[in-house]
Design a protein around this nucleic acid. Structure first.
Lengths: 337, 337
DNA sequence: CTGTTAGCGCCTTCAT
DNA sequence: ATGAAGGCGCTAACAG
C-alpha cells in the first residue's frame, strides 16, 4: 500500500549534500555550483524523481492551476473553449482542472468547493442556466482568487468577462432572414436568466424594428435549452393560424433540433421555413440542409479568458481590472435560410 | 499578494480547542462531542473555511484525483468518454484532471509528468497515434500508481483495459455492406501502431473472407488520421481503374470527410459509393446522407475505465488485476449504405 | 472525548 | 556556494 516516493532527501543523501542545495539545483537557482547541479539533475533523472507539486504548492501558496467550470460538454462549443483556454494556460505554465456543472446550480456550487479546496490560482466560469444566486462565486473574490467569466457571465460581479457581440450577431442573423424575404420570424430564445438570451433577443427585436416589422410576441418563445422540448415549441409555432416563415434559434443545437422537427413534419427547410442558429458548432456544416449560423471564435474565447485570468493572477488584488472583452461574430450563410 | 487563508488553527483558537479536535470534527470523526463538532462546523461555515486539500493530500499521501490523458477533443468521442469517467469518479469521491496529448508523443510524455507531479492516485490513458515507446507510462506502474487504458491501449503493459469489440464491429459493418450488394469494399484504415486499427482491419478482412471476396490490397489504405489528407486517399481510390463501390472508414470523422469528398466529386452516397464509419459520433446522424456506423457505448467506456481504476487504487499493488473489459458495439444502419 | 507530538516534501530565510 | 532551521496546513499515532 505504501509506495516509496523518491524525495529530495534521497538524492541529498546519495550525493552527500544538504536538502537545500538539492532543492536549489532542482529549481534552477543560480547560486549553485555547476558540477553539483549537474550531479543532482542526473541522479534525479536516473531515479525518475518528480517534484511533489503538492508540497511545493503548500509552501509557495501557489498551485499554478486554473480551474474551469463549464455548464456542459455535449455540443462542441464548450470543449473547444477549453481547448483554447488550455493552450494559453499551459504556455504560461498553468495546469487546468475542468469541471462540468451539468447545467445544475448544485453541481456548480460543488464545483466551486472543489476548486477552492484544491487551491486553484484562479477560475474561469460560464454559469449554468439555473444560476441566479452568485454567492458561491463571490467567495473567490473575497478570498483573493481571481475569477473570469466567459460566454455566460454574471452581471452582478465586477470582474473580467469575455463575451461575443451577441446583440449584433443576432441582429445580423435576423436582418439576413429579412433580406431573404422572410416576414414572420420566430425566435426560440434561451432562459431569461442568461444574459446571452437577453442580448440575442434584443438583437432580434432591433432587426425587426429596423425593418419596420412589428414584433409579434407570440413568435418569441423562451425555453430552458432542454433539447427534448424543442419539438413542442416548433410544433406549436407551426400550428399557429399564422405560422412563421423562419425561426432564429438561440444556439446551434436548438437550430439543428428544429430542422429535424420541421423535416419530420414533412416541411422543407428553407423553402417552407428558414432556420438560423448561433455558434457554428461542428455539426452545423454537416447537417442537411447545412445551417446558417453566427459563428463565434470559440478557441479565442477560451484563450482570451485564460489570458485575462492569468493577468489577474499576477496582479495584486488591489489592482484587479474588470475588462470586458467583446469578440466578434460572423454570419455564416448556408442552405437553411 | 498574500491572501490570508482561514485554517484549522484559526478556528481552533476562536473556539479554544486543539487543532486535532477541530480536525476531527471537520473530518467527521465519531469520537468528538456533538456540541463541539457543531460549533466547529458552524464557525467553519461562517468563515467560508475550506479544507486545504494540498495539505491533506501531502500527509495522507492520497489526492483523490485521477488523471485522464486523451489524444484529442475534436470529435465528440473523447469528450463523451471523459463525461462517463467523471461521473463514476466523482461519485466515488475522486476529482479529475484531464490532459489532451494533442496526438503527439511529446505532449503525452509531458502530460504524464504533470500527472506524476500532481500526485494523481491513478491514470486513465488512451495513447496518441504516435506513441510507440511506453516508458513514460511504465513509470506509473513502477511508482505504484495504477493505470488503466481505454480505446487506444498499450499491448506491452499488463494492466486493465477497456475496449470495444473492434474486430466484431468491423466485421459486421463490412458484412452489412456485402449484404447490400457491395463487391469492392475499400478500407481507410488507421495507423498500424494502433491496436484498434489492426483489429478493425482484421474484422474487415474476415468479413470479406467469409463472403468469399478476395482481399484487394490496393483497397486498403492505412492513414495517419489527419483529416486533411482524406481527400487524397479517396480521390486515389475513386481514380482506380476498378474503383470501390464502398468504403469502410476507421472512424466517423474520417467517414464524414469521405462523404464530403465524394459529394464534391459529384458522386452520390450511397448510390455510387457507400460509406460506413465507426463510433457513432454526434454529427453522424445529422450529416447528409446520415452515416451508417458502428456505435460504441462511449460513456460506458469512460465509466468502466474509471471504475476499474478506482478498484485498482483501493487494492494493494500486489493484488493488481489486469482485466480486459470488452464492451459491445452496435451496427447503426442509416442512409450512407 | 481531547490534547500533544511528529511529521508529509518542499522552499526560504538566515547563517556560514 | 552550501547548511541548518523553521514552517506551509493538515492528519495520525500516542497519550491521557
Amino acid at each position: 500500500m505504501k509506495r516509496h516516493q523518491i524525495t529530495i532527501v534521497d538524492i541529498a543523501k546519495e550525493l552527500n549534500l544538504s536538502k537545500s542545495t538539492v532543492s536549489r539545483a532542482l529549481t534552477g537557482h543560480p547560486s549553485v555550483n555547476a558540477v553539483t547541479r549537474q550531479a543532482v539533475l542526473d541522479l534525479a533523472e536516473k531515479l525518475d524523481y518528480q517534484r511533489n507539486m503538492l508540497a511545493i504548492s503548500l509552501v509557495t501558496r501557489k498551485t499554478n492551476t486554473i480551474g474551469i467550470i463549464v455548464p456542459e460538454f455535449t455540443s462542441s462549443y464548450f470543449p473547444n473553449i477549453t481547448i483554447g483556454a488550455q493552450e494559453v494556460a499551459s504556455k504560461a505554465g498553468y495546469n487546468t482542472v475542468i469541471c462540468q456543472s451539468n447545467e445544475t446550480y448544485e453541481t456548480e456550487v460543488a464545483n466551486t468547493k472543489v476548486m477552492l479546496a484544491n487551491q486553484v490560482d484562479g477560475v474561469l466560469v460560464s454559469i449554468t442556466k439555473e444560476t441566479k444566486n452568485f454567492d458561491h462565486l463571490k467567495i473567490f473574490q473575497r478570498k483573493g482568487i481571481p475569477i473570469v467569466f466567459f460566454n455566460r457571465v454574471c452581471d452582478e460581479m465586477d470582474v473580467p468577462k469575455v463575451i461575443v457581440d451577441d446583440y449584433d450577431g443576432a441582429f445580423r442573423a435576423v436582418n439576413h432572414l429579412i433580406e431573404r424575404g422572410r416576414k414572420r420570424i420566430a425566435h426560440l430564445s434561451g432562459p431569461p436568466s442568461l444574459k446571452i438570451s437577453e442580448k440575442r433577443l434584443n438583437g432580434y427585436k432591433a432587426a425587426l424594428r429596423k425593418n419596420n416589422i412589428e414584433l409579434d410576441e407570440d413568435l418569441v418563445i423562451p425555453y430552458d435549452l432542454n433539447l427534448d422540448k424543442v419539438h413542442i415549441y416548433v410544433n406549436h409555432l407551426l400550428n399557429l393560424p399564422h405560422p412563421p416563415d423562419a425561426i432564429f434559434a438561440i444556439n446551434d443545437p436548438t437550430a439543428i433540433e428544429i430542422i429535424q422537427v420541421v423535416k419530420k413534419r414533412g416541411l422543407q427547410v428553407p423553402e417552407d421555413i428558414a432556420v438560423v442558429g448561433f455558434s457554428n458548432d461542428f455539426a452545423s456544416g454537416l447537417i442537411h440542409p447545412s445551417l446558417t449560423t453566427v459563428s463565434q471564435p470559440v478557441k479565442e474565447i477560451g484563450g482570451t479568458a485564460a489570458q485575462l485570468l492569468i493577468d489577474q493572477i499576477s496582479r495584486d488584488v488591489s489592482e484587479w481590472k474588470s475588462i470586458i472583452r467583446v469578440l466578434k461574430t460572423e454570419l455564416i450563410v448556408r442552405n437553411s435560410s
